[in-house]
Design a protein around this nucleic acid. Structure first.
Lengths: 112, 112
DNA sequence: AGAAAAGTGAAGCAATCACTTCACCATAGG
DNA sequence: CCTATGGTGAAGTGATTGCTTCACTTTTCT
């Protein structure tokens, strides 16, 4: 399925990398410039910039440039989309589990 | 960062594909055999099996074989790890946001 | 003006991904 | 036994990923 347009694909893909999650974790504490974000990592600025672009494309991060400094910050709405998907699955699963519980109850093995 | 061992890497990577998410959505309604899972997709059984293996490696899905049928089901604990990470970021962000609110409340001509 | 700092873009490279096809094994049922 | 069903494994392919280096622009500082 080569549908790289699906927002959830991009979102989860963006979060599937330790460097990018670390960037998110950093930005959650507050906005930061590109080179501030790059400093902790043992890789080139270019590499970090590419990670940052993935995060921006996914919508997780927004940025604006003033002077020569690009300041980045979290866009919480994007992360909420992934949270919602996961929550939807979990509640779906809990419902199935309840149904299973009902069946087990009916068959007399009351365990809860 | 070639650390494909990190559980969160594997988890998010597993969820970063529409086919795999569809499999999860299916399994949330209840267990299913490999070929049941494959049926809706317009790709070979081998391809679906590879997706399934990614899900199993990530821990999102467990399976057991009885006879010639492998039955798969969701392992909810794995998904909870991703949910926890996301929730942690959101609460972290909300805290930052509150701090920002405090600063804005304290308003204008105060330099601390 | 000249140098340093901050960021950008492109090309290249090895590894990984998402498939395909083909060959194959194991079990269930006539 | 024989065949259909359900599932596996391996090899191959083209696209994508996660970097690197190098060249370059723009802004700030002195």
């Amino acid at each position: 399925m080569l549908n790289r347009q699906d927002p959830l694909d991009r979102l989860f893909q963006a979060l599937a990398d330790g460097t990018r999650r670390a960037i998110v974790e950093r930005l959650v504490r507050g906005p930061a410039a590109v080179s501030d974000l790059a400093r902790p990592f043992d890789m080139s600025l270019s590499a970090v910039l590419q990670h940052l672009n993935v995060l921006i494309e996914s919508g997780l991060v927004v940025s604006e440039k003033s002077g020569r400094v690009r300041t980045c910050r979290i866009e919480p709405g994007a992360m909420r989309m992934t949270e919602d998907w996961i929550t939807r699955q979990r509640t779906g699963w809990e419902r199935s589990f309840d149904r299973l519980g009902d069946i087990l109850d009916d068959s007399g093995d009351r365990n809860d």
